[in-house]
Design a binder for these strands. Structure first.
Length: 176
DNA sequence: GAATTGTCACCAG
DNA sequence: CTGGTGACAATTC
């Protein structure tokens, strides 16, 4: 029996986004870069699967995702159906334990995983199909600057800015 | 900020 | 194993 991938589009302050689900859970969360392109990419990613639009069925999911984007500390508790190599899944799992508002360098993150190279971690992170819920945006360069993001550097900066605002630290920031 | 170089584990064949 | 590849890191201008 053919696998069915359901998807739907939502809107947030970061722009449009698309969620896609298999029977097991979330398989993709894409931040708007053209509906046709994203939907096409979905079919390429799941050859042989039936990719169908289910806007109304996923309305609850869309609502949760929207809230996560607006409020980084909100936990949607959605099941993730992560597909990739064993190494990629390990990296994505590690990403999800990073605390809100924290950032880590690729090198430091690599060290947490083992003795692997920073360059290697980037490949796995860059292959992450699930934006925001797998907080790949919390990994930045050692320099502190942001060099790349699959869904646009501007969105990455925006997400980080929100998380830092949402950070529970009592410190009063003097930045302006 | 943009360009350059060193480096190495992973992935595909 | 061989070959190709990077959302790096550190340096330079």
């Amino acid at each position: 029996m053919r696998e069915v991938i359901r998807f739907a589009w939502g809107n947030s302050s970061l722009g449009e986004f698309m969620v896609a689900m298999s029977d097991k859970g979330l398989v993709a969360l894409e931040l708007g870069s053209g509906r046709d392109l994203v939907e096409e990419a979905l079919r390429i990613r799941f050859p042989g699967a039936e990719v169908v639009s289910r806007q109304l069925e996923l309305i609850d999911i869309l609502d949760k995702i929207t809230r996560v984007i607006e409020e980084p500390r909100f936990n949607p508790e959605l099941p993730l159906d992560m597909r990739g190599t064993a190494y990629e899944i390990e990296v994505w799992s590690m990403l999800r334990v990073l605390p809100v508002g924290e950032t880590i360098s690729y090198g430091a993150f690599a060290a947490k995983l083992g003795t692997r190279d920073a360059r290697d971690v980037t490949k796995a992170i860059a292959s992450n199909p699930i934006a925001v819920l797998v907080p790949c945006h919390r990994v930045i360069k050692k320099d502190g600057s942001i060099s790349g993001y699959r869904w646009g550097v501007k969105r990455k900066r925006e997400l980080l800015a929100r998380e830092q605002r949402a950070k529970p630290l009592p410190t009063s920031e003097g930045d302006g």
